[in-house]
Design a binder for these strands. Sequence first.
DNA 1: GTCCAGGGCCGTT
DNA 2: AACGGCCATGGA
Length: 235
Amino acid sequence: MKITPQKIYKILLKKFGDLNWWPIDINYHEKNNSDPRFEVIVGAILTQNTAWSNVEKALTNLKLLNKLDIKNISEININELQDLIRPSGFFKQKAKRLKDLVSYLKDKYHGDLNYLFYRDISVIREELLSLKGIGPETADSIILYAGNLPIFVVDAYTRRICQRIPLNTNISYDEIQDYFETELSRNYTKKELTKVYNELHALIVLLAKKYCKKNPECIECPLKKICSYYAELFQ
DNA sequence: GTCCAGGGCCGTT
DNA sequence: AACGGCCATGGA
């Protein structure tokens, strides 16, 4: 029996259910008439190699001062921005990355995310990747979770699980991404894919945090029946 | 006190 | 192309 991404998706979905990942503070954005997608974008930058709990503190700081929108980030003093996002770590480079990003959004799209996400996915991806501080995972997280467009996000967790099962032992980001997208495209319609990519990435992150850790705890892992790493434990 | 988290950049080999 | 050092805070 061949192990596929769609099989893993089914097992994890049955075990953990719908995760409704990357929920944003809709009350804040309704009250301030701001774009909730921008909160996702900021979160994607701030969470680089950083625990989400620390990112939440930074986002809270930005909201308390009503700074969580494109216009206000572009106008805020860089030192003040650093101070607000300090809890998320790497605060100097992340402040610069946010500044560069909002400059790009203002210059090219008049600060309107509709204009950005209206474009082709490949164009959005290339533009985001051209910005210093936005690599493949951040770009794809923005496209998927802010743009609600079908692209599969690969991260350190995805790689680790792919190696252990093994599902796909490629190292390059693009090859793993292409593998997941090609496989999943065979079983789901175009309309379903965004939802599937969104959910599967969230499920993978949860699995990696609970079971497939750096030092794995395989005993109760929902994937142990199809995982050769688990099988080798008992050789 | 040590480890590590939802990466990415840059310099060296 | 691949690897190592670096960036920084806060929770376990």
